[in-house]
Amino acid sequence: MNKLLFGIGFIVMLLLQWSLPGKMIFDQQLAVNQGIPYKFKTEPIDPSDPFRGKYVWLNYEIGSFISNDTIWPHGADLYVYLETGEDGFAKVSQISKKELNIELDYVKTKVDYAFKKEVHFSLPFDRFYMEESKAFEAEIAMASANQVQRQQNQEPTSICYALVYINGGTTRLEDVFINDVSIIEVVLQNREKEKTTIN
């Protein structure tokens, strides 16, 4: 009997160890298959995680919304409902403390703080993992693309955005683009340019 229980315990442990990464993959795949893609304007900064490697941290333009409700405690659940704006990028349609029975897609996050009717929050898909040598170069590529415009007192024309699939609250950050070119591709192009300049 003890041996049987022991065996069952062992099999349950194996299944549990498979189930979490398995569910993570399943949810992500479902978000791509059934979800709607949104573009979020962003700016990348490169930090590092001791276990999961280098990533670009994405600082989104969307980060607050005006609400008539004045009670938004720090750390409370927040549902951010989205729609696509005229410029083709995602914008906030409304925010709520509870899940609403409406057609719009939403992202679940937490309240950072609220000040004068403005509720501040962070979008959860803020990590884009990259090969360790490319993360820093990606940040440099974006910064230098905008710097040229700023030096000439012009508004930056380089647009950096993240492509995110959203399906019933599940999000999948697919890629990050600089002027419609994948950030990985931009890094590779820059490396090629450097090589030809040296030669």
Partner: peptide, 14 residues
């Protein structure tokens, strides 16, 4: 740990 971290990394799970 490596299996969870790699899945998080591949799918950019926040």
């Amino acid at each position: 740990g490596s299996s969870i971290s790699l899945v998080s990394q591949i799918y950019n799970i926040p």
